[in-house]
Design a protein around this nucleic acid. Structure first.
Lengths: 265, 265
DNA sequence: CGATTACTTGAGCTACATCAACCGTGGTGG
DNA sequence: CCACCACGGTTGATGTAGCTCAAGTAATCG
């Protein structure tokens, strides 16, 4: 049950349409209320449309952009998924984020006009390329687009802050539970099942992202499964007890770092 | 040697000017190349100026905005410092960031039109208030301002990603060393000493921010001092061996989570 | 079908959290 | 002006979550 298959079946029930044509225009895009066009008039969507390039699908493992590469475009994931990561001087990789359909990546490159990290497809993935200079000019004219751009960046900052909170405060089981619930929610918004999905990333990637050793991740998957919280067979995940997972994710403050008397000092 | 004193003495050496008048206009602001006006014409700076409100200084411990509060403005720190933090359901606080002069906060509120966290002054602090609706309209007309806004948000995303990398990969000593160097660099850019500064935040705050127990932070300060890397007396910090600190901060990968063969999976 | 890669499981060790006692300092009231 | 208190910080002792090393198993790919 890959993303692509689901897209087709989902859409076919309404009208016969190929995945190809489906994705030809923003105005027809199933993801448009997750992507840039929110709150933009039909007419302006067409203008946005005219600057968007649809790229041929990336094969699994293909680099969308490299670390240090000059920045010229943002990318919206149309289908598939992408990991974005930074390589340190010593070669250590750190994954910053996973991007799912409807999500936009490259925002961290605007500042220095170059990509601080690389982006690689985790599976067969197609993206829309949004040339930044043209987007920028368009946003000058289209009020809603400017706002939407700012909102999307703000949302990213939000997500990062939330995740920092997780890394600073939560133990391994809370991190993994939170990760699964987060994926579940993001799939759900996109019309996929919220209880059954495929992890496109490896255990290694998950551990790297969550700041855990791969072994720890593996053990936790096993334990969650033994406890009947999930069913996991390699990449295939089924969430059985959402409530229990939620409890793990934000309950049981492990490190109770409360700031007694919330003065500044 | 507080921030404020330094500002006055620094400026007085050029022309006699009070802190009050110094901060009356963006065009005169010593911080303008850190703040919004970069790459904006003199004329446009005046337009920006006209929408900025200067607030009376916040006393230490004063709340600039509260968690959940409606979002109407961004804030630029003029002098002093601010901590921004989120309170969880269970009352646990997590500090997201510390803001120094020239830095802009509130960016995470654009998305949902409400502040996901609170902001509190760590010492006597003055800020410029930038009403977002007016800023937004102005950015529509001033090309450079829109770009600058996007750049600033991108920079924040960058910083968050870097910090996530620290939280996920670095041990306690690397975190604290990195924290001190980061403050040092930020003070340096602002014209303050890069080797000698005051921590406006408590050990508790530092620990909370870095995902460490306060006791660990305290022990590390002691050790760094014993090893001759820094001199620390309560809030006053002097950096003695920058190189050694740098080594600690990014050397000695503690958890060598290298992604062998950087395919996707 | 063999080999490479992804994942799992086990055993032991260490970095850091936790709990607890103590110290220094700055502020307050007598 | 001093004594005391409260609070921020320091230091010590101990427990444990999760990392590391290591060996084995299952899936995938040529």
């Amino acid at each position: 049950m890959t993303g692509e298959t689901r897209v087709e079946s989902h859409v076919k029930s309404h009208k016969v349409i190929t995945l190809q044509s489906l994705s030809r225009a923003c105005s027809d895009c199933r993801l448009q209320d997750l992507c840039l066009p929110i709150g933009i008039s039909r007419e302006d969507i067409d203008r946005l449309d005219s600057i968007v390039n649809r790229r041929r699908p990336l094969q699994r493992g293909t680099t969308l952009y490299d670390q240090g590469q000059h920045f010229d475009a943002l990318y919206a994931v149309r289908s598939g998924s992408i990991k974005s990561f930074t390589r340190d001087d010593d070669g250590t990789e750190q994954i910053n984020a996973f991007y799912l359909p409807g999500e936009i990546l490259g925002l961290d490159a605007i500042n220095a006009n170059s990509h601080p990290g690389a982006a690689v497809a985790l599976e067969t993935t197609s993206v829309c390329e949004l040339p930044f200079d043209r987007l920028h000019v368009l946003a000058q004219h289209v009020e809603g687009l400017q706002h939407q751009l700012l909102r999307i960046m703000s949302r990213e900052i939000n997500a990062d802050e939330r995740f920092m909170r997780v890394l600073a405060n939560r133990n391994a089981e809370a991190r993994l539970a939170g990760f699964l619930l987060n994926l579940s929610a993001r799939y759900s918004i996109r019309g996929y099942s919220s209880t059954e999905f495929n992890l496109s990333m490896s255990r290694n990637d998950i551990g790297n992202y969550l700041g855990l050793a791969m072994e720890t991740v593996s053990r936790l998957f096993t334990r969650f499964q033994q406890d009947g919280l999930i069913e996991a067979h390699r990449k295939a995940i089924r969430i059985l007890q959402r409530e229990a997972l939620t409890g793990l994710a934000d309950g049981s403050t492990p490190t109770d770092r409360i700031n007694h008397g919330h003065g500044p000092t």
